[in-house]
């Protein structure tokens, strides 16, 4: 049998074996047995040196063709087998993608902090500073400097925890206003501030009273601040807290540190103003107190009340949270029951 026939026969055998191969490993064995150093095709090619030099180019060409054909075949087959193997592997690796993921725990923000930060962010955006003060204050800053002298009847409205006759737990965050007014340099611009924090009143704790609660007060003092500015600011605040469709109404009221003073109602977010159990049928819910800063408060802090004027408002995050989320017992905010706290985990 001539070399050419030998090559054809070997190739035919190799093709059959290759086609029958079921693994990359088998293919490699086939490659070695034909194309390896001692492989059949290699062996055939080794015999080329013994043949007639005239026939050598023809045989040589043929031999190269056979080798290339087999190489290509093996490579295609290998690719196919690898692809099949990968498919099988992936098939085997399939998981139940609905199984629960690994545990990640994220603690929740206290609901009161959420309310307060929302309000803080709103006012930061309008150029207000956040100023915090002491929770233990002097009687002087807590009362006298906000126009509540000794024996003022309005002191009844705020029963107070005293530590000494001159030192008390602040009953509102207003002493911060007095202290800030005193130190603010009006030549550097208007005073726009909010002061969030804990406050304390002599109340027996029950579903609607707490001896400790939170307050956020705001104040703007500059030249030409009007009550209309107060109304506009509070409208913005009400919409931010209770939704774009809310309206507010101002009712005359009394606070010693503002004149005029108003209570501010927001149109009921539950019934929209028709009257329901949340607004007790009135369509309105009282949410905060406000007014134009009393000239005495300005003067006592050394601010010229004929030149500067402004407004102040105060609201209770506890009450806002109770209204907004329908919480029926204020004590929930301070018990820190995880079953309560975690209800406010959602951010969106």
């Amino acid at each position: 049998m001539g070399i050419e026939e030998q090559l054809t026969t070997v190739l035919a055998k190799a093709v059959i074996e290759t086609n029958a191969a079921e693994s990359v490993k088998e293919l490699e064995a086939i490659r070695v047995s034909y194309l390896g150093k001692k492989g059949e095709i290699t062996s055939v090619l080794k015999g080329v040196k013994d043949i007639d030099p005239k026939e050598r180019p023809i045989i040589g060409k043929k031999a190269n063709e056979v080798r290339d054909e087999l190489t290509a075949l093996l490579s295609h087959k290998k690719e196919r087998l690898e692809k099949e193997a990968l498919e099988r592997q992936l098939e085997n690796e399939t998981i139940d993608v609905t199984l629960p993921g690994k545990q990640v725990s994220k603690g929740q923000t206290h609901v009161l902090t959420q309310i307060m930060e929302d309000i803080e962010d709103l006012f930061l955006g309008m150029g207000y500073q956040i100023i915090e003060g002491n929770e233990v204050e002097s009687d002087y800053y807590n009362f006298e400097r906000v126009n509540l002298p000794q024996n003022h009847p309005a002191r009844d409205m705020q029963d107070t925890f005293y530590i000494t006759p001159d030192v008390l737990l602040r009953t509102h965050t207003s002493p911060i206003q007095a202290r800030t007014l005193e130190s603010h340099d009006f030549s550097k611009g208007p005073l726009k501030m909010i002061s969030p924090g804990k406050v304390y009143r002599r109340d027996t704790d029950d579903a609607t009273h707490s001896h400790q609660f939170h307050q956020i007060e705001g104040m703007v003092i500059a030249e030409n601040i009007t009550m209309a500015d107060l109304k506009g600011t509070l409208e913005l605040l009400a919409k931010k807290m209770f939704g774009e469709d809310r309206e507010i109404r101002l009712r005359p009221s009394y606070f010693p540190f503002t004149e005029p003073s108003v209570e501010v109602d927001v149109s009921c977010f539950k019934c929209g103003g028709k009257g329901c159990n949340v607004c007790k049928g009135t369509g309105w819910i009282e949410i905060l107190g406000a007014g134009m800063t009393h000239p005495n408060v300005l003067e006592m802090s050394g601010v010229d009340s004929s030149k500067y004027s402004g407004f102040a408002f105060g609201l209770g995050p506890d009450r806002i949270a109770m209204l907004k989320y329908g919480v029926d017992d204020i004590r929930n905010f301070y018990l820190n029951d995880q079953r309560f706290l975690q209800q406010f985990k959602r951010k969106g």
Binding site: M126, G127, Q129, G189, P190, K192, V220, A222, E223, N224, I225, T226, M227, A228, D229, K231, G232, T233, E235, L236, L250
Partner: peptide, 11 residues
């Protein structure tokens, strides 16, 4: 009362 926002020097 109208509703406005304070227009003062911005800080």
């Amino acid at each position: 009362l109208p509703s406005t926002l304070p227009h003062s020097e911005s800080v």
